[in-house]
Design a protein around this nucleic acid. Structure first.
Lengths: 361, 361
DNA sequence: ATAAATTTGTGCGTATGTATC
DNA sequence: GGATACATACGCACAAATTTA
């Protein structure tokens, strides 16, 4: 293995390229003549020519017959594609369309377009997508990490993004060891706290929690749920918590609630904190299937304040998710990173808000 | 002026390039060695090297140390961006996320990415977007025309797409004079017919219709509505039809229904055919505000079979809109156009389907 | 205006290094 | 190890374009 350093023409290429990139040789400026370079470096003119040809092919210099060799003006060589990649876990899940809309509004105004990708919450897919995006010329990236609670084995791909100086912004979550990267998060712990505290204030003591196990939001909302219980002096009962995974989301919470509702004497409950509005609706359906009514028999809360929450059979008390704002803030943060402005705050946390409707009493 | 022919290395470049382009030297095939070429052309090996280096820079050949010089496989030299633009009127409106998801599924599988744009149903915006897309290198375009009922003044932009051989597929509508272009439509006339016919079969005679005035779907559903009335021998009453525009969609149908519901004696109705599920829900709200109940007092139908329809207070009888399928069919059609296959059918009409729930009796 | 000097471009010869078969 | 093929490196001669004295 050689260090590549013994090649004379290669040395000269690097030396001249560095001088050009560092500004010691400026665009339009004439380089020393071939003979001068040869003499200065104690190499033959042919070797100098070989080096200059490489630089010419790379676009750093151009030669004019009889006049000399000159440094190129490469302004606009990095002509940006004006494409920004937006990578989310899902496309049609109820909150993303509006997040994407928020992003789009800001980016369109500045002449950028969205390159849309979704990981289906798969880590492997995310890696594949980032690799693919590194091939294309994108100006920036807004990404929602997939299954963010599981340790990330492909941090090197993000290192590649850093290397190519492609700025990126995390939304809705962030891998551990990357807490200092630009990101826009919701305070999900506080959201979980607020909604549980509200149920407690209504007099509920036996509160079932349903959380998604494979993302950070689920963990955080769970922590907020515990915090509210502790503050009220209610013992935390792990048997009252249902964990589900993305793949189970349609069936698992529904079946668990039905199962729990069946044996009313042994383990009863008077409220359910659901991970999101979709789950809350399936909880209400499960209760109805067991002849329990919401909110008469059991209070149920959602999360996200989707249109489902407002228009479903029992309008849901839920936590507002400022979807469009999240998107537009992420886009604005990314734009300021791209413009290499001094960005004051690169970690923004949006405060959650309680929306009270009819699903609790 | 010289014929450039006196330059030996240039001659050799042209000779070899011609042989490669004409197929005499095929991809992967080994070229004669430098010494052989030098001997055959009675030139020095250095001159041969100069020629080969030019060909290497141009991408026609590649050299392998110790093995020889080989002809490149230049398939995919016109390396496409593998980006497909998807232009819709809105992003977060309830049907688009799933249409886009359907498109994404098909395209991702084939290694393409979606470049997302939305016109906000503005003709000017659409023109701007197409102009912008012509600058970028997209491989194809799936577009939902904006305000498709109004005459299109920018057909020349589509002519540009034809000129640059960028294939495109219309979804959900099509400009007049472009009926022969590839497109995937829903039979909205039949949908309007089916839902109205269903209301008539339930015994309704005084059926109000609410339609969007500024797109083709509205016009078609209206035609189906008339057709069903005529078939049943019910006179068409223009006063029973409410037309609204995109900008009015939140308020106009609601207010008109409230106004009509107020004067119960003069003009009464026992059913409402709404343009879509969103409008149907606001109709039900307007009826409730006037102390009328759906479906007891008035039957109401939606259109699109969105999740709103299934989960809202009064589950809606509606027309199923195969959103993902529409997207995936559009993507497949576009892919086959891009591959320049002989595409049998380029105009595909999806049949609508009646979904019966609780909002009619 | 011309000639000389400078600078890049073309072309050849030779020697040596290094990877592949 | 030997033959082959590409890679690096130097030297020389002359051509063509441009600048300068």
């Amino acid at each position: 293995m050689q260090t590549d350093k013994r090649l004379k023409y290669h040395d000269l290429v690097e030396e001249l390229r560095d001088k050009i990139l560092s500004g010691h040789i400026r665009p339009g400026e004439k380089l020393p003549s071939e003979n001068e370079l040869a003499a200065a470096h104690a190499i033959s003119r042919q070797t100098v020519r070989k080096a200059l040809q490489i630089l010419e092919n790379e676009g750093f210099v151009y030669a004019e017959h009889g006049r000399g060799t000159f440094c190129s003006d490469r302004t606009g060589v990095h002509k940006s594609s004006h494409n920004i990649a937006v990578v989310t876990t899902y496309l049609s899940d109820y909150i993303f369309p509006r997040v994407i809309q928020g992003i789009d509004q800001v980016l369109t105004e500045k002449g950028y377009s969205i390159l849309l990708k979704n990981t289906r919450n798969s880590r492997a897919m995310e890696a594949k997508i980032i690799e693919e995006l590194l091939q294309k010329d994108i100006d920036g990236l807004i990404i929602e990490p997939s299954k963010s609670q599981i340790y990330c084995k492909h941090l090197n791909l993000y290192a590649m993004l850093d290397k190519y100086q492609i700025p990126y912004v995390f939304i809705q979550g962030c891998y551990s060891h990357m807490e200092k990267k630009p990101q826009i998060l919701l305070d999900d712990r506080k959201g979980g706290f607020l909604i549980t505290e509200y149920l407690i204030s209504l007099g509920h003591r036996d509160i079932v929690g349903i959380f998604k196990a494979d993302d950070m939001q689920g963990q955080e909302r769970h922590k907020g749920y515990i915090q509210a219980l502790q503050q009220a002096g209610i013992a935390y009962d792990p048997d009252k918590v249902i964990w589900y995974h993305t793949e189970d989301r349609k069936s698992h919470p529904y079946e668990q609630i039905r199962r729990m509702a069946k044996k009313r004497e042994k383990l009863f409950f008077d409220a359910v904190v659901a991970y999101n509005d979709e789950v809350a609706i399936s909880v209400i359906q499960a209760l109805e299937a067991e002849n329990l009514s919401c909110p008469k028999d059991v209070s149920v809360t959602g999360y996200d304040n989707s249109y489902l929450a407002a228009s479903c059979k029992v309008p849901l008390t839920t936590i507002a998710h400022p979807q469009e704002k999240l998107g537009s803030m992420a886009a604005k943060l990314l734009l300021s990173l791209m413009e290499k402005e001094e960005v004051g705050q690169t970690k923004i946390i949006i405060e959650p808000e309680l929306v009270i409707r009819d699903s609790c009493q």
